[in-house]
Design a protein around this nucleic acid. Structure first.
Length: 721
DNA sequence: ACAATAGGGATTTTT
DNA sequence: TCCCTATTGT
């Protein structure tokens, strides 16, 4: 492969980045839409083909599995060869790989399991209960948060001086209990993966030297999102003269609240001196107006590394700003605009509705249903986080290792088999006192239990033993299928009346398919079952059920990072909502809000529209709000105030006014404008208008969930409320 | 064991 | 308002 194949089609700065001498450290400050992934991939191709770097000598780190997968695929395409043995992955995935390769040196057994957020929450909660720590004074979520924050910094309980802060004191206490519990049960949470693998290398000169020798080049994507321990991890690995190639954008650092340190990218230049810094400022995504507006906005931040995007693709349209009266009006504006554009030939999938918090999605969803536009809301539970999937995986874990206490706790009485809380508490106590697994404790305890509990428990332990025997020689996917059936899970979900769509059953089927697929792409040298279970913990993107891409996309701005859409609606631009109230008092938090706004705006390729509501219904009450300060920071030469009202909108103002008045109905069952009604299918609504009376009356009702409808009284079967 | 009910809390969530 | 949890009653 010759050089021109690698640098063809790159601009000057991109090509300079790709062909930097292989003896140099590099920092590529890559603005939004400037082709950073491309540079990263071509850089690797350059090293491999022009500098004869073995693919084994390259370590490429990303933040998401999706990014890792994309990088691997695009690289294989460019190089026209498989690159199996190259280490490409997320920080957590690579750390996990290290720990699986050297468990003993990391003070672990080969049986260790990964704890996800939910598991972690449960454990912290139980430890607090067992130690009589008042949950109402010290919310589990806050304590869990505290623990993770410390770990992200690489801090252990013994490093913390709580002083007189009682909350910190209690948190540290739980932190200690939690650490002891995890060590005793071979449990590794997400942050622990990083800390553990860091100390593994730090304390083991031989191993460190081995990996330092191996990885000549370490490439890191999204460097602005690294946290303290990740930074230290990279620093440690590169202390043997290895070269780093970091790509990132300080203006897009939006995960500070999760421990990401924007300072990390800022101190690269001094910490990894000498290092060559190159800026990629030519943007291939957005129009000139969108970029100029975004540049003007982000210029309000302090301590930037400095960068200004430009494009040669023309100014494009002005940015629309819409002042809505209420959040309903805002939703109506956005959705009716989308409808108009669809009528003009836009695809629904070209439009994205972005918001600061998930709660805002509702109003848009209701309107989209009303307009009959297909949509897709991102967020919520991921595939491997779904209850039914975790249940199935816990059975898999139990037959793999009966000592897996987390799995035991989850499924010992699910589907319910008559093992109550009292019994489980006895098992826990026995296992604590005798240092055995919950499973062993169950067997030992059975004779001393009341007959009913004993029988139920025997049923469970025998089920597990029998299943692990039977499944021993099955393929992974057959194993999963067998477990789901034999454990009674499938049966349970088949009879589940709340699961009308049968999606839980479908998800379980999907899990079998995922297992089958995994057989063909195993993760390195790990045991198949262990690898699959770990994948389920570490890969949240694995929603294989992703619908066809013909939908308007709704998501938080955070989840939109890295994506682009022809048409973007950035909504809820109000003080206290965006920027969030919680960020108001701290300048550095406010700067992050502004970066978030910058990220949101720069997602747009052709059209950007910003909207805010004067009055918003939130948390059960109507609040008046001021327009977001970010709107004022965008020069008016790039914007256009949308004055034009849509036909439906004016009408909705009136409806909303009626809706928001608390009119007392005069006597039950009387048909009257303003009266609240309930419909079996459409839910609650308010009477807007009616014609005739009695059973033949036609009634116009504005339903909260499905909008306005005319109904015939005799068919509607309305209940007056 | 499960359903009904009451109370509390409510950003963002790559792993 | 909605959602999740803990408690209570059957």
């Amino acid at each position: 492969m010759n050089l021109s194949e690698i640098i063809d089609g790159l601009n000057d700065n991109q090509s300079q980045s790709v062909t930097l001498d292989n003896t140099q450290n590099a920092l590529i400050l890559a603005g939004a839409g400037s082709g950073k992934t491309r540079v990263l991939i071509h850089r690797i191709a350059y090293l491999v083909t022009q500098k004869n770097t073995p693919i084994d000598a390259i370590l490429a780190v990303t933040f998401t599995n999706k990014a890792a997968k994309e990088m691997r695929e695009r690289l294989e395409l460019l190089l026209r060869r498989p690159i199996r043995s190259m280490w490409v992955g997320t920080f957590h995935g690579l750390a996990h790989r290290l720990l699986r390769a050297h468990p003993i040196e990391a003070n672990l057994s080969t049986q260790f399991q990964i704890l996800d957020q939910q598991d972690q929450f449960r454990i912290v909660k139980r430890l607090m209960k067992e130690n009589q720590i008042d949950e109402s004074k010290y919310p589990v979520r806050k304590i869990q948060w505290f623990i993770n924050q410390q770990k992200d910094e690489g801090i252990r309980p013994s490093d913390i001086d709580a002083g007189y802060n009682y909350f910190v004191k209690q948190s540290v206490r739980v932190f200690e209990l939690y650490e002891a519990h995890c060590q005793a049960n071979e449990l590794i949470d997400f942050a622990e993966l990083l800390v553990r693998s860091y100390t593994l290398l730090k304390n083991n000169a031989e191993l460190l030297a081995h990996y330092q020798n191996r990885f000549e080049h370490i490439l890191v994507d999204e460097f602005q999102d690294t946290n303290t321990i990740q930074y230290k991890w990279i620093k440690l690995l590169t202390s043997g003269g290895n070269k780093v190639f970091c790509v990132g954008d300080d203006d897009q650092s939006i995960y500070g609240w999760r421990g990401a340190k924007i300072e990390n990218i800022q101190k690269l230049e001094s910490d990894f001196h000498p290092i060559q810094t190159i800026r990629l400022e030519q943007n291939y995504r957005s129009t000139g107006n969108i970029l100029a507006a975004s540049n003007a906005l982000i210029a309000n931040n302090a301590n930037r590394m400095g960068k200004s995007l430009w494009t040669n693709s023309g100014n494009g349209d002005l940015i629309d700003i819409y002042e809505a009266r209420t959040e309903t009006d805002e939703a109506d504006f956005v959705v009716s605009t989308i409808q108009k554009r669809i009528n003009d030939g836009t695809l629904p999938s070209e439009c994205a509705i972005l918001y600061r918090s998930n709660a805002q999605s509702r109003g848009f969803e209701e309107r989209l249903i009303k307009y009959n536009i297909p949509y897709l809301i991102y967020g919520g539970l991921r595939f491997f986080e779904r209850a039914e999937i975790k249940d199935a995986l816990c059975y898999l874990r139990l037959i793999e290792s009966s000592a897996d206490n987390v799995a035991f706790e989850r499924v010992v009485n699910f589907p319910t088999r008559g093992i109550g809380n009292a019994t489980i508490e006895k098992i826990r106590e026995f296992s604590r006192e005798n240092h055995t697994s919950l499973f062993q404790a169950s067997i030992a305890l059975t004779p001393s239990l009341p007959t009913r509990a004993a029988n139920a428990l025997t049923g469970f332990t025998q089920l597990i033993e029998q299943m692990s025997d039977e499944a021993k020689h099955l393929d992974l996917n057959e194993k999963v299928a067998y477990l789901i059936k034999e454990s009674g899970l499938i049966n349970h979900y088949s009879n589940d009346k709340t699961d009308k769509a049968g999606s839980k059953k479908e998800n379980l089927e999907e899990l079998i398919a995922a297992a089958k697929q995994y057989i063909h792409e195993p993760d390195s040298d790990m045991n198949e079952v262990v690898g699959f279970i770990s994948l389920a913990s570490l890969d949240s993107s694995g929603d294989t059920n992703a619908p066809v891409n013909q939908n308007v996309q709704l998501m938080t701005i955070h989840s939109a990072k890295g994506l682009e859409f022809p048409q973007v609606f950035l909504t809820g631009m109000e003080e206290d909502l965006f920027p969030s109230r919680q960020s108001k008092d701290e300048p550095h938090l406010m700067d992050e809000e502004r970066r978030l706004c910058y990220v949101g705006m720069t997602r747009a390729m052709k059209k950007l529209s910003l909207s805010f509501a004067v009055k918003r219904f939130l948390h059960g009450q109507s609040l008046y709000a001021f327009p977001s300060r970010f709107l004022n920071e965008i020069p008016s030469e790039y914007t256009n105030s949308v004055k034009q009202k849509f036909g439906a909108t004016l009408q909705n103002y009136q409806e909303d006014d009626i809706f928001n008045q608390d009119i007392e109905p005069e006597g039950q069952g009387q048909l009257k404008v303003g009266v609240g009604v309930k419909h079996a299918k459409f839910g609650f609504g308010t009477v807007l208008n009616f014609e005739g009376d009695g059973d033949s009356a036609r009634i116009q009702i504005k339903f909260k969930a499905v909008g306005t409808k005319w109904l015939i009284a005799s068919y509607a079967n309305l209940e007056f409320v």
